[in-house]
């Protein structure tokens, strides 16, 4: 589904990703771990299409298409979803209006008629239940005045609404208490199926107790230095990231 080859990316003349390779297939959950500042969020932003980076080398193929040539909204409509590490507040724009615009633009993109108000509300109720969200959040402006946990739950809710093909969770667990963490993980587990894939970016192993990954990759200094099964996460948790220095050098 997603094939990243030799991806080299810089920002303001500073290289962040240095020849990264990653293959993701349908039905897989990949965890990407690594210390701060090794390019985890950069990878997420690049896939979503944030245009502040310079791509020096490499290719990203997404379902047979060159991802680099697609606009941000086009990628989203093709099924890429990014759960933001720091969701943006948009004052005055209600969640309902926001989501309805997003869903209908996606439907339009795929040549479908827009959802009626009733259909939309029904869908929203369903998904809210799925991700255990209180009705109040959706009446408020997008992320405005939300607590850290609420913002992250709201991201998962949007993911449920938009039903992505490839979802990237960028440090969705950071700053969450155990209850919120469980809500987020349950949401992901309910949504995962044989036709979609997840990239879970995290600093800690904790989230992976709830979302069991098929693969774990360690991103270090702009490269994936180690890949393995879910047991790699535990190993990292025990030994810390320090030991990575030794085998790679």
């Amino acid at each position: 589904m997603l094939s990243i080859k030799n991806l080299t990316v810089s920002i303001e003349n500073k290289q962040i990703l240095k020849g990264l390779n990653l293959e993701i297939n349908k039905g897989e959950v990949h965890a990407i771990m690594g210390p701060n500042g090794t390019g985890k969020s950069t990878l997420a932003n690049i896939i979503a299409g944030k245009n502040i980076y310079t791509i020096e080398e490499g290719t990203i193929d997404y379902m047979g298409k060159n991802l680099m040539e697609m606009e941000v909204d086009e990628r989203a409509n093709e099924g890429i979803f990014l759960s933001f590490q720091y969701p943006v507040e948009i004052p005055g724009v209600s969640m309902v209006n926001f989501m309805r615009t997003a869903i209908n633009e996606q439907r339009q993109y795929h040549g479908k008629d827009p959802l009626s108000a009733a259909e939309f509300l029904q869908k929203m109720e369903e998904k809210k239940k799925l991700v255990e969200i209180h009705s109040k959040l959706t009446n408020r402006s997008v992320n405005e005045g939300f607590s850290g946990g609420e913002k992250k739950k709201n991201e998962i809710f949007q993911m449920a609404m938009l039903e992505p093909v490839l979802a990237i969770l960028d440090e969705t667990d950071s700053g969450l208490d155990i209850d919120a963490l469980r809500v987020v993980a349950n949401g992901v587990n309910k949504l995962r199926n044989e036709n979609n894939a997840f990239i879970v970016i995290t600093h800690y192993q904790r989230l992976l107790d709830y979302i069991i990954p098929d693969f774990v990759h360690v991103l270090f200094e702009g490269k994936i230095v180690k890949s393995g099964g879910k047991e790699l996460a535990l190993e990292l948790e025990q030994k810390g990231y320090e030991w990575l220095n030794q085998p790679s050098k």
Partner: peptide, 16 residues
């Protein structure tokens, strides 16, 4: 960027 990432075109996003 946030709106675009949710599939909302720049034009609609500005309106919103």
């Amino acid at each position: 960027f946030y709106c675009n990432q949710r599939g909302i075109s720049t034009e609609s996003a500005i309106g919103l």
